[in-house]
Every structure is written in C-alpha cells, then in structure tokens.
C-alpha cells in the first residue's frame, strides 16, 4: 500500500490561455446556454480548515439549494466562461450510512474543462462551505468552495472556488431546475 505520509497532494497550475488553437464550447444537450459572463465581485475565500470546523449541512432549508444551475457570471473567464452546477443529496456509507449534501461543478474555459466534486458541506453562519475534490468524491481536497450569497427569490447563488495554492475565482449561478436529476 502507498505510504500515506509521504506524498503531499500538489496542484499543478496550467496556463489556461496558452493553448494555441482552441474551439468554442458548444451548448450542452439538456441544459441551457450560459449567458455572457459578467464578473461578480470577488468574495471571501475559505480554507480546508474553515470547512472542517463548519456546522454540517446547508445554511438554509435544502430545498432552497437543491437543483441544477448554470453559470451566469465569472471573475475569471479564462477559467470559467461557462459552467454547470448540480446540488443534490447523496448517500454515503462511511463513517456511517447517511444522506449528505453533494455537488458536481463543471466549468468550461477556453480549451480546458474542470469537473469538481463538492462534499463535506457545512455552514459558517449564513455562508455555506464545502470541500472540492477532483476525480472522485473520496479524493483529498483540492480546494474549497464558499456559497457567499443566496437569493431565494432569484434562485441565484455566488460561489467562491479557492483552489489549493491558487487564486480564488468567484462565480455566479442561477438555478434553472429545482430537480437535481436530469
């Protein structure tokens, strides 16, 4: 078995803009197109330690969060000029069987796609937080997200993604379906 103490996860930061010829991202089947991204103001970032000390669960009733969202604004279009977010409940078995908040965040830049898994949801006051992993839910955190604002009437939330060792990216999402399942 691998030595769990020896290898420290390191994120390799790639330039997302120097990719030579790139193609435009088409509209996905089954989901609406993202409108041109208007940059939301950067919000406060949270650390993995912040997530660890957060109270479990959503900061508001889960029905206010669950569903499918599209990206409507990004502070860094070179990383996220379009995006999809699904917030849903997932059954886990460890440390015990329970249903927990989860998410899939897909962001599309020019020439690069990032698919991130959101788990360990909690809240610090009215601010929701979660760990971010790449590849699968059980991977070590590659960063965090903070849900810095949620307006129930407009079904809009602002999400700050803080990659480990990278600059935060603020993204605004609008919910287009309260059903997380396509």
């Amino acid at each position: 078995m691998p030595d769990r103490r020896r290898v420290i996860p390191v994120l390799v930061l790639l330039s997302l803009t120097g990719a030579g010829c790139t193609s435009a991202a088409p509209v996905p089947a089954g989901g609406p197109a993202s409108s041109p991204a208007s940059a939301p103001r950067p919000g406060p970032a949270v650390s993995v330690a912040d997530v660890a000390r957060a109270a479990p669960g959503w900061p508001a009733p889960k029905a206010a969060y669950l569903g499918r969202y599209k990206l409507t604004g990004s502070s860094d279009p070179s990383f996220a000029r379009a995006g999809l977010l699904t917030l849903f409940m997932r059954t886990i078995t460890k440390p015990k069987k329970m249903v927990v908040p989860s998410g899939i965040l897909s962001v599309y830049g020019p020439g690069a796609t990032s698919v991130l898994y959101l788990s360990q949801f909690g809240h610090l006051g009215q601010r929701g937080v979660a760990d971010v992993t790449a590849g699968l839910y059980a991977a070590p955190p590659a960063g965090t997200v903070a849900l810095t604002a949620f307006t129930a009437d407009s079904h809009t939330l602002t999400l700050v993604l803080s990659p480990s060792g990278g600059a935060p990216v603020t993204m605004r999402f609008t919910r287009y379906s309260a059903d997380p399942h396509p």
Binding site: T22, A82, I104, A112, T113, P182
Partner: peptide, 12 residues
C-alpha cells in the same frame, strides 16, 4: 498544438 474542450454535462 491545440486543445478541444467540449461543454459536456457530467451530471446528465
């Protein structure tokens, strides 16, 4: 030389 990144819905 180039990269192609289609907008695939991974929750579909």
């Amino acid at each position: 030389n180039w990269s192609y990144a289609p907008m695939v819905d991974f929750s579909l």
